[in-house]
């Protein structure tokens, strides 16, 4: 149940989503950092979009510190017309497998699960006013949350082609 912690709410009052959005300057700095890191360990495979059997996707940032999470096109199509999206609270700590939100369509509430542990850094607030966008561009503009990761996913993650095969079998 998405009962929101008052700590997270208090934190949110101090730092609005807009304030947390990195300035162009910060973006530049990040890009540099990522290049450096690439020399050591971050492989291209990690940054590729990965899918779960629950039809969520995650995509790691270049520096490997945050990931963007959303639901797959297959899931968006299966849900039908989405009328409301419950987003997680910023600064909420989440563990792999937790429901971090829910999508409502045609009288059904479906949980959105996170395949990775971390802290919610940003949510796509546009979805609060235009939930229908998730039916249009679920793997692009209609991402759900960005998570500062604190571990690696231990569950099964699939590449685009593996996931396509998985949904065709289902």
């Amino acid at each position: 149940m998405a009962t929101r912690s008052s700590v997270a709410r208090a934190a949110r009052q101090l730092t609005s989503a807009a304030a947390r959005r990195p300035s162009p300057f910060v973006c530049q700095r990040w890009a540099q950092a990522s290049q450096k890191q690439r020399l050591f360990s971050v492989s291209a495979a990690l940054k590729e979009k990965k899918y779960t059997e629950d039809h969520e996707w995650i995509e790691m940032s270049a520096d490997g510190k945050t990931c963007t999470l959303g639901i797959s096109e297959y899931a968006a199509k299966a849900l039908g017309d989405v009328v409301y999206i419950e987003l997680p609270q910023i600064e909420l700590d989440v563990s792999e497998g937790d429901a971090i939100g829910a999508v409502e369509s045609v009288k059904s509430a479906s949980d959105i699960l996170t395949p990775i542990s971390g802290t919610v850094a940003e949510v796509n607030s546009d979805l609060e006013t235009t939930p229908g966008n998730i039916n249009k561009d679920p793997e692009g503009n209609a991402w759900i949350a960005k998570i500062t990761v604190s571990g690696k996913p231990t569950g099964k993650m699939m590449s685009k082609s593996e996931y396509t095969e998985f949904t065709e079998d289902a």
Partner: peptide, 8 residues
């Protein structure tokens, strides 16, 4: 009248 909840 119906309503639904979907989990994993």
């Amino acid at each position: 009248g119906s309503a639904y909840k979907l989990t994993r």
